[in-house]
Simulated assay, not measured.
Amino acid sequence: MVGEHLAMRNSTFFRSVNLIAMSIGMLPIHLMRRLANGDTEEATDHPLYPVLKRKPNDYQTALEFKSQMQTAALLDGNAYALVVRGFRGRIISLIPLKRGTITPLLSDTYELSFRYNPVGGGSRILPASDVFHFRSMVTLDGLRGISLLDVAAQAIGIAVQAEHAAGRLFKQGVMAGGALETAGSLSDTAYARLRESLEERYASAENAQKYMILEEGLKANALTSDPDKTQHLETRQRQSEELLRFTGVPRPLAMLDDTTWGTGTEVLGQFFVTYCLLGWFVAWEQAVERCMTGNEPDTLYAKFNDGALLRGSLKDQADFFAKALGNTNPWMTQNEVRGNFDLNRAKGGEELPIGGKAAAPAPANPEVTPVPPKEPAK
């Protein structure tokens, strides 16, 4: 039986789950609002905004909440949180529900509800508006996501058995590097002297590469490596690769390969975001819209700032923003560029540059027209 405790003891599986959960947890979710003129803005005045971005409940930070929910969605396929409402039904808190206590139900009229079975006993039905349900993107019934522990159970089990085999090899296997043989027999004195010299004069790293003095016709024979033992490493390597296929984490990010620190690492990070995290970003955003936007589903939506993970080097960013500001047809303002680096807005930075030149800053007091100085009298 492959359970979560056994699976999380595998270094490759733990690294993959931890990397995805950590990446999701550290990025903030912004609650956005669509305006009538087609623009968008952060809905900072909405009560759900601080719940998603800063404080989901009284005992967790936003990072801890999202990491816990993401881990549950990976292991079980589903993560549930109780939606706590305050005055006028406003959402004031999200409390993660214990795993295995919630079951989604779909009635004959296609109305969604949830059966809640607390640990202390009892059972009650919760309406869909009281439960935030975040699930895996792969589902067979449209209600429950597929558990990673279920689909990867065989790969995890083989990896665990390979670990156990390696442990037995180091615990019970013969690790001798060679043997001493003689055509005759050793005297008790020669045997005791040989054993003492092996233990005291030739053991440990300090005595590496020293030559031994053999007596009474002894010959040293090195033992060759057992092919079955060397295959343990190949088996463990192969199972690590198999687990990564289930999670979508690239090999170097699971620390299976050495990689050059530089542009290759940047491309690798972009690959990880695009082909592993991006699907989870969309799943989070649409789960928030489905469960918590209430009467404003057409105007409110959630958004991850995945651009922070997709940024290249400082040189690449400088080249991109220089083109965005300095092109003959610029498409970004100074304040939009500054916003990408969490910098405060600059005065006069709301206008698009004209003809590749930055917009002139507005005067300190636009109502007062500056008077040119008078020429001195001759």
Score class of each variant (00 low, 15 high):
residue 250 P to V: 08
residue 48 L to R: 01
residue 56 P to D: 12
residue 78 N to Q: 07
residue 153 A to D: 12
residue 209 Q to M: 12
residue 309 L to H: 09
residue 113 S to W: 11
residue 301 Y to F: 15
residue 225 S to Q: 14
residue 309 L to Q: 11
residue 57 N to A: 09
residue 225 S to F: 14
residue 197 S to Q: 14
residue 196 E to G: 14
residue 313 S to I: 13
residue 5 H to R: 12
residue 346 A to P: 01
residue 375 E to A: 12
residue 147 S to Y: 00
residue 376 P to M: 07
residue 188 D to M: 04
residue 322 A to H: 06
residue 30 H to S: 06
residue 74 L to Y: 02
residue 60 Q to R: 09
residue 366 P to H: 09
residue 161 Q to M: 14
residue 11 S to T: 11
residue 30 H to I: 08
residue 332 M to I: 03
residue 81 A to P: 08
residue 236 R to T: 12
residue 171 K to C: 05
residue 83 V to N: 05
residue 200 E to C: 00
residue 159 A to S: 15
residue 114 F to G: 13
residue 48 L to Y: 05
residue 235 T to A: 14
residue 368 V to P: 01
residue 361 P to R: 07
residue 362 A to E: 15
residue 112 L to Y: 15
residue 20 I to Q: 00
residue 165 A to R: 06
residue 20 I to P: 01
residue 13 F to W: 13
residue 104 P to L: 11
residue 158 I to F: 15
residue 102 I to Y: 05
residue 167 G to A: 10
residue 136 S to G: 11
residue 139 T to K: 00
residue 183 A to Q: 10
residue 93 S to Q: 11
residue 25 G to N: 05
residue 25 G to H: 06
residue 142 G to M: 04
residue 140 L to V: 06
residue 334 Q to V: 15
residue 321 F to N: 10
residue 56 P to C: 07
residue 266 E to F: 13
residue 140 L to A: 13
residue 150 D to P: 00
residue 181 E to A: 12
residue 188 D to P: 03
residue 167 G to P: 00
residue 279 G to M: 03
residue 319 D to M: 06
residue 141 D to T: 00
residue 254 A to M: 11
residue 360 A to K: 07
residue 348 G to F: 07
residue 115 R to V: 14
residue 88 R to S: 14
residue 86 G to M: 07
residue 206 E to L: 03
residue 293 T to R: 05
residue 324 A to L: 14
residue 146 I to Q: 02
residue 121 G to D: 03
residue 336 E to Q: 15
residue 80 Y to L: 01
residue 65 F to K: 04
residue 281 F to E: 05
residue 251 R to V: 03
residue 170 F to C: 04
residue 12 T to M: 10
residue 64 E to Q: 15
residue 316 D to S: 14
residue 279 G to K: 02
residue 117 N to D: 15
residue 33 R to T: 07
residue 296 E to S: 02
residue 128 A to Q: 12
residue 99 R to N: 02
residue 354 I to R: 11
residue 274 T to M: 09
residue 225 S to D: 14
residue 173 G to N: 06
residue 59 Y to H: 08
residue 329 N to K: 05
residue 41 E to Y: 00
residue 319 D to P: 01
residue 249 V to Y: 01
residue 247 T to I: 05
residue 356 G to P: 08
residue 35 L to F: 05
residue 316 D to W: 04
residue 337 V to M: 07
residue 369 T to I: 06
residue 44 T to R: 07
residue 128 A to N: 10
residue 79 A to V: 08
residue 29 I to R: 04
residue 304 F to D: 01
residue 201 R to H: 08
residue 276 C to V: 10
residue 304 F to V: 03
residue 14 F to N: 12
residue 176 A to R: 09
residue 136 S to M: 01
residue 19 L to K: 05
residue 345 R to I: 15
residue 378 K to A: 09
residue 20 I to T: 05
residue 317 Q to C: 05
residue 136 S to Q: 02
residue 20 I to W: 02
residue 251 R to N: 02
residue 322 A to G: 02
residue 300 L to A: 12
residue 61 T to V: 12
residue 8 M to G: 04
residue 2 V to N: 05
residue 96 P to E: 08
residue 220 A to I: 04
residue 241 E to S: 10
residue 153 A to F: 08
residue 142 G to F: 02
residue 134 F to T: 01
residue 248 G to K: 09
residue 271 F to A: 05
residue 339 G to E: 11
residue 6 L to Y: 03
residue 53 K to Q: 14
residue 335 N to R: 12
residue 90 R to E: 10
residue 171 K to N: 08
residue 236 R to W: 06
residue 50 P to M: 11
residue 185 S to A: 13
